[in-house]
């Protein structure tokens, strides 16, 4: 019960923040919420199932282009495009998983990294269609919801998507399948002995993870009006890992906290120095050295053992 109270309270608090914050911060928050959906998806694979992937940029970019290409070339409306992007992310994750899940550990990281790299290079290779490094400009958020300004429509949709993703991930990890995912992370051999098929469970978890990543990529492209090959670079595989590590791997609210913390850390640092990459690097090293459980993971361990 208190789990539900906490998560509904967090969603209500976000809603209040969106209503009272000035436009600049509300747009920032919309960006954070959309990216947090990506982090939630990454967390399903990494935090709960124990699949450390370095290729999630591929699923994010599949979402970005799964939405952007139909809008640009087939004249799709925004909502069908969002669904197309989400499906593209899941399909891409499924195809990657079919091959990559035959490996584990370090090999899995490298195989996913290589697939993502091949995806990025393919986007450049077919630059005439995808726009390559320059990318495609999309209509943006204006007119998405009749009667609302672009800013208002963007924050509304970002909030709706985030709320949906958060509730879905909470239901998922507290349900039967969530426990099976954790069993894979903790002891694959023992769960195999109990009659589970590790390959099928991990594949399903990766597809779900890709679904969230694709939804986030599609929403990002549609709401902020831009799709480019840069979304497929390795940086977009590293960032969700950083957000999840910072917020706490294997916690439901961790991805949101990590994404917001890292966003504002870079934002605040950016007003003092241009050396923002340094903060990403130092944050990664310090987290893995001193706080491998992240913010929420540490809180759960010390004070609140009931946190999902």
């Amino acid at each position: 019960m208190k789990v539900w109270i906490l998560h509904v309270a967090v969603l209500l608090a976000l809603l209040v923040l969106l209503l009272v914050l000035p436009a600049y911060h509300a747009t920032n928050l919309a960006r954070i919420m959309v990216l947090a959906v990506f982090a939630i998806g990454y967390n399903l694979a990494f935090g709960y199932t124990g699949l450390l992937s370095l290729g999630h940029a591929l699923f994010f970019a599949a979402g970005v282009y799964g939405a952007a290409l139909p809008v640009t070339y087939l004249g799709f409306a925004q909502l069908p495009a969002l669904i197309a992007g989400l499906v593209a992310g899941a399909v891409m994750a499924g195809l990657t998983g079919l091959l990559a899940l035959r490996t584990a550990g370090v090999s899995f990281m490298i195989v996913t990294l290589m697939f993502a790299q091949a995806g990025y290079l393919s986007l450049l290779y077919f630059g005439e269609v995808t726009g390559g490094d320059e990318g495609l400009v999309l209509p943006g958020a204006a007119g998405l919801i009749p009667g609302l300004s672009a800013d208002a429509a963007r924050t509304t949709i970002a909030y709706g998507l985030f709320a949906l993703a958060l509730i879905a991930s909470l239901l998922l990890v507290r349900g039967r399948f969530g426990r099976t995912m954790v069993a894979m992370r903790e002891n694959e051999e023992r769960s195999r002995m109990l009659g589970y098929n590790p390959f099928a469970v991990k594949l399903a978890a990766l597809v779900l993870s890709g679904l969230f990543a694709g939804a986030s990529g599609a929403a990002y492209a549609l709401l902020f009006g831009y799709a480019g090959a840069s979304f497929a670079t390795i940086q977009y595989s590293i960032l969700p890992m950083l957000w999840v590590l910072m917020g706490g791997a294997g916690t439901v609210l961790g991805p949101l906290i990590g994404t917001a913390a890292m966003f504002y850390l870079v934002d605040i640092a950016g007003s003092y120095t241009t050396a923002t990459l340094l903060f990403v690097g130092v944050a990664l090293v310090l987290l893995i050295l001193f706080a491998p459980r992240g913010i929420l993971g540490t809180i759960r361990e010390r004070w609140l053992p009931w946190l999902p």
Partner: peptide, 12 residues
């Protein structure tokens, strides 16, 4: 993860 962090630090 740590060497990815180093990568960014060296680049910067």
């Amino acid at each position: 993860v740590a060497t990815i962090g180093l990568l960014y630090i060296f680049q910067q």
